[in-house]
């Protein structure tokens, strides 16, 4: 790839505004964000439209399986009772991130001018991480009346040392959380587009992008799971009652 192409790949990343709502630019990632959300809401509507206690639709079975699986996964982190109560948060993140990640693997979608997989943009993943951060603070205040913040002052003598460290740790979380997700998906898509470029030049290397796609299927799932798990860890820590 020449330097020109490298710069092009970066600019193709598509943070240019499609249109504006008031002062706020709407980029293709924001459209993608809304598209993924609309798709999930459509699925949810299709399922809840005829919800059966004895399920007879495959979609309901799949979504129930996902819900139960996520519950048992987060139960290991914060116990079954709180996992059930807070289930909508990790489950929504998981569904959103998984569908967004996989949307980048459908061959047509990333080439639409108005759509990019939202999780391949740092701005979007940062938004998700900021949401997690805000929700953790809200939970800490509402659930434990701020008892969560006691750990910042834990050894009273070391407070001058521990307080800044604790605050920095709390603020670094959204940074690393968003960067991990974004970098994984973005790297995968970049690798995929490079592979497709190579195949365009040398057709018999076709297995390469197929292999990368398979790898990205795994990575997309694992990254959704990682984000979900860390969210559950943070929310679990913020909602923990110390006796």
């Amino acid at each position: 790839m020449s330097t020109h192409e490298f710069a092009l790949a970066a600019s193709e990343h598509g943070s240019d505004a499609l249109f504006y709502i008031g002062p706020a630019p709407v980029t293709s990632a924001v459209v993608g964000l809304w598209a993924v959300m609309a798709f999930i809401l459509l699925l949810a509507w299709l399922v809840t439209r005829r919800l059966e206690m004895v399920p007879n639709s495959r979609l309901q079975n799949v979504l129930e399986l996902a819900i139960e699986g996520l519950h048992s996964w987060t139960s290991r982190i914060m116990g079954p009772e709180r996992a059930w109560r807070y289930l909508p948060i990790p489950a929504t993140f998981f569904l959103f991130i998984l569908i967004s990640n996989y949307s980048g693997l459908i061959p047509i979608l990333p080439h639409l001018p108005w759509y990019v997989p939202p999780t391949s943009h740092w701005g979007v993943t940062a938004g998700l991480a900021v949401f997690v951060f805000l929700f953790v603070q809200y939970t800490a205040v509402k659930e434990t009346r701020g008892a969560y913040y006691k750990h910042l002052f834990d050894p009273p003598l070391l407070t001058p040392l521990m307080l800044p460290l604790g605050i920095i740790e709390e603020l670094v979380r959204p940074f690393s959380l968003s960067l991990r997700l974004f970098a994984n998906i973005f790297a995968g898509e970049t690798a995929l587009s490079v592979m497709i470029g190579i195949v365009a030049a040398i057709p018999f290397l076709l297995p390469l992008p197929i292999f990368v796609t398979a790898l990205e299927m795994v990575a997309g799932f694992v990254q959704a799971l990682i984000f979900t798990t860390l969210t559950a860890v943070y929310v679990g820590a913020a909602s923990e009652h110390h006796h």
Binding site: T3, F6, A7, A10, W73, R76, W122, S176, L179, R180, F182, A183, N184, F186, A187, V222, Q223, L225, I226, T229
Partner: peptide
């Protein structure tokens, strides 16, 4: 589950470097 978490944490360090290169590439080019 612990393995997947650990692998993701390690993986993210490499990807942080990748992201940093892209961020700085914007500055350089």
């Amino acid at each position: 589950s612990a393995l997947i978490l650990s692998l993701a944490f390690i993986e993210s360090l490499t990807l942080f470097v990748f992201a940093m290169i892209f961020i700085l590439a914007g500055r350089v080019t």
